[in-house]
């Protein structure tokens, strides 16, 4: 083997190892007390994080951890939307309409028709069962924790994110700084699995689904409103129903007390 091949081999092994480590963690964990987050930090050695966690514990009672596999943002938002829809039939129907509408919107944008139809169909068929209450919460979370099932649904989330960005290419293209086209960016960063969402991905998914979100930041940045959170979109009037906790490189879902 040449050096280059050896290097690729080594890289592959490392990726495989990281992947196996990730898979020890559930894709979508159960809801657990938010105090767990405080336990992650030591009051002596990392007082900033510790204090932020304590402060957030006043507002948030629970956390649902999501596997850190590069899909965590998409998965967290998707689970957040599902939980809203499981409690509110009207909203479930509304979200189903949005999703059904995306099939044509994606085709209009030139997504390959056959595979796109397949992703849309699998997603909407699955979601219809949630809307029509033909499934149980247990089954829903089983599906969400089955790699193959769950990731097929996540692709739909990625496709509509890409679709939204492409529908508004004039607004988003200027944010891509390395000279790539928006289409190129979407295919390598948004549609490709296991790629973390950056601010375009975040904005695209929120606007494509119609679900506003609040992100509480656990890093060292302070948000403009004096607290730690950002609402997306920034001008949304009501407190978003879905809150995420951001810790460097990762998103989990958190729940108000």
């Amino acid at each position: 083997m040449t050096d280059a091949e050896n290097e690729i081999e080594l890289q592959d092994q490392q990726f495989k190892q990281i992947e196996n480590e990730q898979k020890m963690f559930p894709l979508v964990a159960d809801r657990l007390p938010f105090d767990l987050v405080i336990l992650d930090y030591d009051a002596e050695t990392s007082p900033d994080y510790y204090n932020k966690a304590k402060e957030l514990a006043n507002t948030y009672g629970e956390i649902r951890q999501i596997r850190g596999d590069g899909n965590c943002f998409y998965r967290a938002v998707f689970v957040g939307i599902l939980e809203v829809c499981m409690k509110n039939e009207e909203k479930a129907k509304q979200f189903l309409e949005t999703c059904l509408g995306w099939n044509d919107r994606l085709l209009k944008l030139g997504f390959p028709d056959w595979t796109t139809n397949d992703f849309c169909e699998v997603f909407t068929d699955w979601f219809k069962k949630v809307v029509n209450k033909e499934t149980t919460s247990e089954k829903i979370f089983d599906d969400l924790n089955d790699d193959s099932q769950s990731n097929y649904l996540i692709i739909f989330m990625r496709l509509i994110t890409s679709g939204y960005l492409k529908e508004h290419s004039e607004d988003y293209a200027p944010f891509i700084d390395d000279g790539r086209s928006l289409a190129d960016y979407c295919s390598t960063e948004i549609e490709a699995m296991w790629k973390d969402a950056d601010h375009l991905g975040i904005s695209g998914l929120v606007l494509a689904t119609g679900y506003n979100i609040r992100i509480e930041y656990m890093d060292r940045t302070a948000a403009p409103n004096g607290g730690w959170h950002y609402d997306i979109p920034a001008d949304c009037n009501e407190t978003p129903e879905i809150s995420l906790l951001y810790r460097p490189g990762h998103y989990d879902i958190i729940y108000h007390k």
Binding site: W114, T115, A192
Partner: peptide, 12 residues
């Protein structure tokens, strides 16, 4: 490899 997209099928 790195430019794989889930929208490709066997024909593609």
């Amino acid at each position: 490899q790195n430019r794989w997209s889930p929208t490709y099928d066997v024909a593609a």
